[in-house]
């Protein structure tokens, strides 16, 4: 492939590069200078204001509520989702009988996997609107059930004490199935003879799970952690559709703050870009941190 490789490289690489450069790289680069201006979307002219936008956002109480909520998501979303994902995946793959052949899955595991994955193929908008109705204070499924059981029926999304947690529950609900399948695939790749050896040594199920299966899955757990951390810094669609950040910013997230600042309540493009820059550095540091903290040697079965 020595001579004449450049015509192909140029034809194959240039069009994608142009498209990507124009709609992805160029906007990302522009965001940084815009964040140092007082640009209002509808005007052509704007002034350089230095770091004034960043000073403003230090005092922006709505934004700080959003940051706090994203921090909670960052902590809880990966823990809950990975915890439940590992729990159900191990039930599916090893919850069955243990026989001479090792540890096997429960009956009907394919059906469980099929059902658990449902939320993953639905659009987040559908999930948000559906759950908004489930949480509906009067005719929602949840309060209908609670009333039927004679329990009190809170207003869920209308109450600043519960709104954020109600959305967090939906986030976990919609993500768990994907990680059950992901962890399940990784568990299925663990060689059976490892389990046979463990069983001969008389290890209990719990020991097998915590001392053998999970350490062998660490690679996958690490990837899951990073993806969920990045998802935790987002949360935009669910929050926008279910609570719009309310009541009184109690369930707000940074992405929604940014969107509303730029496109809804006001069109402060400069200030919104400053929020975007903050998000960028948050995402970057979370990704780097997650890689650092969870780093271990890769396991290859040969």
């Amino acid at each position: 492939m020595k001579h004449g490789k450049y015509p192909l490289i140029i034809t194959f690489l240039l069009p994608p590069l142009l498209l990507y450069g124009m709609f992805v790289i160029w906007p990302y680069l522009q965001a940084f200078p815009i964040s140092t201006t007082n640009w209002l979307g509808y005007s052509r002219s704007y002034d350089f204001v230095g770091l004034a936008n960043f000073e403003t956002l230090l005092r922006d109480s709505a934004l700080w509520k959003a940051v706090r909520n994203n921090a909670i998501l960052l902590l809880l979303l990966p823990i809950l989702t990975i915890g439940l994902g590992l729990f159900f995946a191990s039930m599916l793959n090893m919850g069955g009988r243990r026989g001479a052949a090792g540890v096997v899955g429960v009956r009907g595991s394919a059906a469980y996997r099929l059902v658990y994955f449902f939320p993953q193929v639905l659009s987040v908008v559908i999930i948000a609107l559906l759950w908004k109705e489930v949480y509906h204070p009067n005719n929602g499924l949840l309060n209908g059930t609670l009333r039927g059981l004679g329990l009190p029926a809170p207003t869920w999304l209308g109450d600043p004490r519960t709104a954020f947690w109600a959305v967090l529950a939906v986030m976990v609900w919609s993500n768990v199935g994907f990680y059950v399948v992901l962890f399940g695939a990784a568990m299925a790749a663990i060689p059976r003879d490892i389990y046979e050896a463990v069983m001969l040594d008389g290890a209990s199920r719990w020991t097998t799970l915590t001392k053998v299966t999970i350490p062998l899955l660490w690679d996958t757990v690490q990837v899951a952690w990073i993806y969920l951390a990045i998802a935790a810094l987002d949360g935009f669609i669910l929050i926008q559709q279910m609570t719009d950040g309310g009541p009184n910013h109690s369930s707000d997230v940074i992405g929604l703050r940014m969107y509303n600042t730029a496109f809804v309540s006001e069109s402060k493009f400069g200030y919104a870009s400053a929020i975007g820059v903050v998000m960028f550095f948050l995402t970057l540091s979370v990704a780097v941190l997650a890689l650092r903290v969870t780093r271990r040697d890769r396991i290859e079965y040969s």
């Binding site: 906007p27 522009q30 965001a31 810094l233 940014m258 969107y259 493009f269 929020i275 975007g276």
Partner: peptide, 11 residues
């Protein structure tokens, strides 16, 4: 790795 929000305004 980049959050799409950063690009929205310039995009």
């Amino acid at each position: 790795m980049f959050p799409v929000f950063l690009a929205l305004v310039p995009l």
